[in-house]
Structure formats: structure tokens, C-alpha cells
Amino acid sequence: MLEVADLHSFYGEAHVLHGASLTVQPREVVALLGRNGMGKTTLIRSIMGLTPPHVREGAVRWKGADLKGVPSHEIAKRGIAIVPQGRRLFPSLTVTEHLTVLKPAGSTQGWTVAKAFEFFPRLGERRHHRGNQLSGGERQMLAVARALMIDPELILMDEPSEGLAPVMVQHLEEIILELKRAGLGILLVEQNLYSALAVADRVYILETGRVVHEALAADIATDPSTLTRFLGVH
């Protein structure tokens, strides 16, 4: 479904991605792990067509079609959504307004406001609250719900557990697995390694802009020496 092949991305003259490659299949959760500054967010932004960075070499293929040079809004229309790091909500918009920006309230096709509130009951309870009135967990649920409103087949999640209490991290894991069961592919960038391993099918480890290791999440869970070797986790 998604194929990133030998991707080289730059911020100005700074060469951040050095030939990164990965794939994500339907109904698959793929975790992208790495220390801070290794290029994980750059890879997410490169897939989504956001600038900066600027992709100079390599390809991002979605269902066989190359996305290089395609505007980010067109990429979204083709079925790729993003849950950005930091949620990026509008402080003055209500929960309902965040969702209806992307799809009319009366829509009955795909993900609707009613379906989002059924999937996230807490958001239904807080539908009239503004973005700056929500808790961290509620803001993350809203960021995911907003992404779902474009009816994606693939979601790119950049550090979704950042700043969340442990109970909300566990709830987020349940949400990710439920979305997988619903048929979505998910590319997950996470600093919370054990949370990522709890939901991922496969793992890529990124180091200085290169994929240095690929494995099944189950294999890493049973042999954590990989995390020690590449991430310094004991």
C-alpha cells in the first residue's frame, strides 16, 4: 500500500534522510523508532508532502503511484491522514467544529461526526468545548478523530502518546488496535518504545536518517537486545 524507497530529504542544505526505505500494508501497524533527531518526523512530513523538508531523491509510492511533488491536500484526498506531533488543534474551535471543518455535519458516508462520537464517547460528551478546554487525552482523541474524517486508508501518527498519562497511553493503544481491525494501515512514530511494541506488527529503527534495522515487533519483544543495541534501552 505505502512504499518509501531510498528517500533523501533536506532542510535547506542539511541532509536529514539518507536513503530511508519502508513499507506499510493494509491492516498493519508499523512502528518507526529512533532517538531524537534521527529524522522520524522528517520522514512523516516527507510522506505527507509537507515542506520543509524537501525531497530530492527517492520515491514515496501510494498504491503504486508516486507521490513526489503531489501537494499535501491532494495526498490527503487520496487516503492518507496525519496526526501531527503536538496535536495542532485550533484553540478556539469546539470539538464538533474541528470535525466538521473536514466533512459537513449532515454527511452520512464513511466517518461521520456521529460515528466519531460513537468511537470516542468522551468527545461526544465534550462536543461543545473548545480545543483549549480539553485535557491532553481528549486533545489526542480529537486529533485522531479529525484525521478519520477524511476517510483514510492510512494514518501517519507522530508521537501520539507524548505528554499523556499512563492510563491514556493504554487507551490510545486500544484505539490504534481498533483502527487496525477496522482496516486501516498505521505508521506510528513513538518515543514510548514499549507502547509501540504493544501495538506494532513490524518495527523499523531509524538512525541518522537511515533505516538500520527491521524486525517483527514480536521478535524484538522477546529479544530486547535490539533496543539496547540501537536505542540504548535496557
Rank of each mutant, 00 (worst) to 15 (best):
E57R: 13
R61C: 01
R56D: 02
V83M: 09
G69S: 04
M38L: 07
G58R: 08
T42Q: 09
P52Y: 05
W62K: 00
P71T: 15
I82C: 01
E57I: 02
A65K: 11
K63N: 14
G69K: 08
K77H: 12
G37Q: 14
A65I: 03
T42D: 07
G69D: 01
P84R: 12
M48H: 10
I82T: 01
G58K: 02
R35N: 10
Q85L: 05
Q85V: 04
R56C: 03
R87Q: 06
I75G: 00
H54D: 14
V55E: 06
S46Y: 06
M48G: 00
V60N: 03
T41K: 06
M38R: 04
S72A: 15
R45E: 07
I80D: 00
D66Q: 08
R56E: 11
I75T: 00
G39C: 11
I44L: 11
T42M: 10
G69M: 10
K63P: 01
I82M: 15
K40M: 06
K40F: 01
A59C: 10
G69W: 09
V55P: 07
R35M: 07
G37W: 15
I75Y: 07
N36Y: 09
R45V: 13
K77M: 09
G64Q: 07
M38A: 11
H73Q: 08
G39E: 11
N36P: 15
G58N: 05
A76W: 01
S46P: 11
P84I: 15
K63G: 07
R78G: 12
P53F: 02
E57S: 14
V83P: 14
S46Q: 02
K77S: 09
R45L: 11
P71V: 14
A81D: 07
A81T: 07
G86F: 15
V70P: 04
G86N: 12
S46L: 02
R61Y: 12
E57L: 11
R88I: 05
R35T: 00
A65V: 11
M38K: 08
V83Y: 06
L67Y: 06
M38Y: 04
R45F: 09
S72W: 02
E74C: 05
P84A: 13
I47N: 05
G58F: 03
R35P: 03
A81N: 04
Q85W: 06
G86T: 12
N36H: 08
T51K: 12
